[in-house]
Design a protein around this nucleic acid. Sequence first.
DNA 1: GTCTATACCCTGATAGAC
DNA 2: GTCTATCAGGGTATAGAC
Lengths: 220, 220
Amino acid sequence: MLNASPLNSLEPPLGNFDLERPIAIPHQKQEQILRGAMQVFLEIGYAETSMDRVAAVAGVSKQTIYSHFGDKEGLFKALMERVTINRFRPFFCNDEKLNGEPAIVLRQVAETFLTLKSDPEYLSLLRIIISESKRFPEFAKLYTQTVIERGRELLCRYFDAHPELNFTDSEAIAQIFLGSLVSYVLAQEILYGKESIPLESERIVNSLVSLIVSDRSNQN
Amino acid sequence: MLNASPLNSLEPPLGNFDLERPIAIPHQKQEQILRGAMQVFLEIGYAETSMDRVAAVAGVSKQTIYSHFGDKEGLFKALMERVTINRFRPFFCNDEKLNGEPAIVLRQVAETFLTLKSDPEYLSLLRIIISESKRFPEFAKLYTQTVIERGRELLCRYFDAHPELNFTDSEAIAQIFLGSLVSYVLAQEILYGKESIPLESERIVNSLVSLIVSDRSNQN
DNA sequence: GTCTATACCCTGATAGAC
DNA sequence: GTCTATCAGGGTATAGAC
């Protein structure tokens, strides 16, 4: 089994991704294969995806895929590592925005996050990460690290810089803040909530912000 | 294709389940098949599950399954309908608990919900509903209806009966309350957050309750 | 390096005995 | 109703020509 692709050769042990490491630039054929693979895997999931279909969509022969990525699992891993990190890393890296009044900053964070609601690629990616979380736990962990852990850290830092918010456990509050947004997207989009129990983003943002910045000065 | 099983014969159009309709009691063989099917489907997902394996686990021949449920899709649908409704319906049906002081009632609701965190069957069910939400949207909708819609309704009714909470949009608050719990379970258990960024249930419950019951009397 | 052709396995589904 | 035996098709992966 060949394993000399730039994507795999320097790969750290599973579940121990280095988020700061720059993504290796693959050769042109590999890029072409990965683009096709992304389309198919994200559309129909791991088990349903056949290598024939990936080859057809990517416009290469099956053997070419096998020589570059070893087997189906190798292809999927290479794809998911690239796509997870590339999609989510930029999202929580712009620290500079977190300055200003809580009501305004938090509203902006929430609204930025909720743009994902109408991003089909993000929705497919989230679904496949959950779907394959048992077979490929490393990508579930990678997601929690890149999105949840980073987001929580950034929010925590902001909360701690604003003692007037009066939080006794800023980590938990950050988790609640992000979690309510994640599950709102999940329920409305992936679980078709918008078809049976629609609820506008704006209402979530308004109520969430008002809960967070509410005056707690006269409480224990 | 036979379709005379009690589970299917009276089935309403897909995506239009009647939550009040009592579940038909299947014959003994059907029960036996469904138990085996549940084990396999919840463990490894729809696409990976083979009818051979279900037959082996259930202790019947493949043909017996086919004569009862028609095909793989029919088996899965019968299973999911039963298991989704049976697992979730009782959860939000005990209205009587929702009486008393907000801080106490809401804490109890949250704690009850979070018992699901250590319920492997619930976790598998949630994962497969999300995994198959594209192929079988009807069960995603069934889930949103039985869990999210019902839960939101109950909470809304409680909130509206307690104007001192000073909510301008109790529906949105209810969504945030339940959503933060759902996503906490998702992140910690299904996405292995507890291995990399553990956070105790108690902290979530404390902060969530304190956010909700916080004094908003001197705000717009 | 990339292609065509193919080996070999396992799948969902069926036929027919009892 | 339930079983054993079997079919046709499509899956991953490989061999060998160029």
